[in-house]
């Protein structure tokens, strides 16, 4: 693993899971809404789209809901949660001395290949997350804890999709 020697080790997964569970519970307990990520990115994107081409936004039903007319796509709790997530990651990274410009990849591929893969994988993730009406955080974690049938079916599908193709991509990671 390409980490600085001074980087502190990651938290024990069960401890991290317990803390994450408490954060998730508190999010539900206080706000009723749970956690999420892709929705915030979606609204940030629509905000930019609306600056560039507001007529287009007003013509596409899916975008209209967020930024049609004088609706402000940033006027949503999820945007603030998403911005907070980035800051939280930075704070924790600084505390653990893990902030470093680097590319994590398997030893057999170049940085360029890894970046290309990351972009393609990200595009699939972004597309799939909107189709499924939520990502691993919003559907999986939050919906899973709330016992939604759709969220559990979704979670199995994510793991199934990744495990099904893991063999073909082994060279990229190992």
């Amino acid at each position: 693993m390409s980490q600085q020697s001074s980087a502190r080790p990651y938290m024990n997964p069960y401890l991290a899971g317990t803390v994450l569970g408490l954060v998730l519970f508190l999010a539900f307990f206080i706000t009723g809404s749970g956690l999420g990520a892709s929705g915030g990115l979606n609204r940030l994107l629509v905000y930019v789209q609306n600056l560039i081409n507001p007529e287009h936004v007003d013509q596409v039903a899916y975008l209209l809901k967020m930024a049609g007319g004088n609706a402000n796509p940033l006027d949503s709790w999820i945007v603030f949660l998403t911005v907070g997530t980035v800051f939280g990651g930075l704070i924790s990274g600084l505390m653990g001395r893990r902030v470093k410009f680097e590319t994590n990849k398997g030893p057999q591929i170049s940085n360029g290949t890894r970046w290309f893969m990351a972009f393609i994988g990200g595009a699939l993730m972004g597309y799939g997350a909107r189709l499924a009406r939520g990502c691993t955080s919003g559907q999986g974690l939050s919906g899973g804890a709330g016992l939604s049938v759709g969220s559990w079916a979704f979670m199995f599908a994510v793991f199934a999709g990744a495990y099904a193709l893991a063999y073909f991509f082994r060279k990229f990671w190992n």
Partner: peptide, 10 residues
């Protein structure tokens, strides 16, 4: 959507 995301994940 979940399957597409799984592929995106790997």
């Amino acid at each position: 959507g979940g399957l597409v995301m799984g592929v995106g994940f790997i």
